[in-house]
Computed example of a mutant assay.
Amino acid sequence: MIPAIHRPYGDGVTGPTLRNLDLNLLPTLDALLRERNVTRAAERLGLSQPAVSAALGRLRRHFGDELLHRTGNQYELTTLAQQLRAPIELALAGVHRVFDASPLFEAATSERTFRLMMSDYATAVFGERVVRRFAEIAPHVRLALRQAEPEFVDNAAENLRTVDGVVLPHGFLTDIPFTDLFDDTWVCVVSRDNDRVGDELTMADVAALPWVVMWDLPTAFAPAARQLSMLGIEPRVEVTADSFLALPFLVAGTQRITVLQARLAHRLAPTAGVRLLPCPWDAVPVKEGFWWHPSHRRDPAHEWLRRTLEELGRELAEDPPPPL
């Protein structure tokens, strides 16, 4: 439980807005903003619905705002509630970091939760090694893995306060501490029955065939595909997606083409019914790193996390994908 607090204003008088404020309302508010439903929030918190309803009443009185308002058969967030989502996540992360702090970290007995952001690609090729190693040497440690989204990367300097770090390729973040993990290469992916492509892919094919791409945003794109613009080729994009794992399945049975990281492509090709071909240009390699907020620098648990991820990255680097 988080204790109730009183905080005096500068004149020494207890502020009316914080008098008897119970910080246990923070996780309740977070659940309500996420679920937008009292019943689901109660289930998320493991509390009774009346208890969460009562907490919502206290929160409404504190903020002087409805927070959740009914629209038809569902609840929507008020403007203030929408503004509170990011600060609440940041506040909870700070509270957890305070109470997780320890002068020592014993992996074998720790029950700490590490919150990591990574793409579905990184989860598939690197995350599996992480969960296996944690099961071996830190069996009580919990992992919370979340999809790294463009909105997170856009404001990474602040958002990294809410998690232990993000696995992301070089080229998106600057002036943020990082630990290098592993490299990968890009391959081109076409349908197994695509008769417009022979045994080799040409730049003429790249220019003529329709494309499936992974997003196409300033902080969300496949560098190998973006690189084509610098070579004077503007891919004819027919489909955009927000999942690397989906790309080969969106290519299968069509004339389309895409690029995919080699480690992932080799896993998915047999199931998706696609062929893998070398890129006919010098595609920039993938260099994955683990990026983290400077406030974690001297945290013994986070130091252990960084060392473990770096070790796993080296092991993955020693196991390259098969040649095409």
Score class of each variant (00 low, 15 high):
3 P>I: 08
4 A>L: 14
11 D>M: 08
14 T>E: 15
14 T>I: 14
17 T>Q: 12
18 L>G: 05
19 R>V: 12
20 N>Y: 08
30 D>Y: 07
32 L>Y: 10
33 L>E: 12
34 R>P: 09
38 V>T: 06
39 T>C: 05
46 G>D: 13
47 L>G: 00
47 L>K: 01
47 L>M: 14
47 L>C: 00
48 S>K: 04
49 Q>N: 03
57 G>Q: 14
60 R>V: 08
60 R>N: 05
61 R>I: 09
61 R>H: 09
64 G>F: 07
65 D>Q: 13
72 G>A: 01
73 N>Y: 05
73 N>V: 10
75 Y>V: 00
80 L>R: 03
81 A>H: 07
85 R>K: 10
86 A>C: 05
89 E>R: 14
89 E>P: 00
91 A>Q: 01
91 A>T: 11
94 G>K: 05
94 G>I: 06
95 V>M: 09
98 V>C: 09
99 F>P: 07
105 F>Y: 12
105 F>N: 09
106 E>W: 01
112 R>V: 03
113 T>V: 15
115 R>L: 02
116 L>F: 10
117 M>L: 13
120 D>H: 04
122 A>G: 06
125 V>Q: 01
126 F>C: 10
127 G>P: 01
131 V>Y: 02
131 V>T: 06
132 R>G: 00
134 F>Q: 02
140 H>C: 13
143 L>T: 07
154 D>S: 08
154 D>P: 00
157 A>L: 12
157 A>Y: 02
160 L>N: 01
164 D>G: 01
167 V>F: 04
167 V>K: 00
168 L>Y: 12
173 L>H: 06
174 T>H: 05
175 D>E: 05
178 F>E: 13
179 T>C: 04
180 D>P: 14
181 L>D: 11
181 L>K: 09
181 L>T: 10
182 F>E: 11
185 T>I: 08
186 W>K: 08
186 W>A: 15
187 V>M: 13
188 C>M: 13
190 V>W: 11
191 S>Y: 01
191 S>W: 00
191 S>R: 07
198 G>I: 04
199 D>Y: 05
200 E>D: 15
208 A>V: 07
208 A>H: 13
210 P>H: 09
211 W>M: 06
215 W>L: 14
216 D>K: 08
219 T>R: 14
232 G>E: 06
235 P>H: 06
235 P>W: 02
238 E>C: 04
240 T>K: 15
245 L>P: 00
253 G>I: 08
253 G>H: 08
255 Q>W: 04
257 I>F: 03
258 T>M: 08
261 Q>N: 15
261 Q>I: 04
268 L>Y: 10
269 A>H: 09
271 T>W: 02
278 P>C: 09
279 C>G: 02
280 P>Y: 07
281 W>M: 09
281 W>A: 11
282 D>L: 05
285 P>E: 03
288 E>Y: 11
289 G>V: 13
290 F>I: 03
296 H>M: 10
297 R>C: 10
297 R>S: 02
298 R>L: 13
298 R>T: 13
299 D>P: 01
300 P>C: 02
300 P>F: 07
301 A>K: 03
301 A>V: 01
302 H>S: 13
302 H>R: 12
310 E>Q: 10
318 E>P: 06
321 P>E: 04
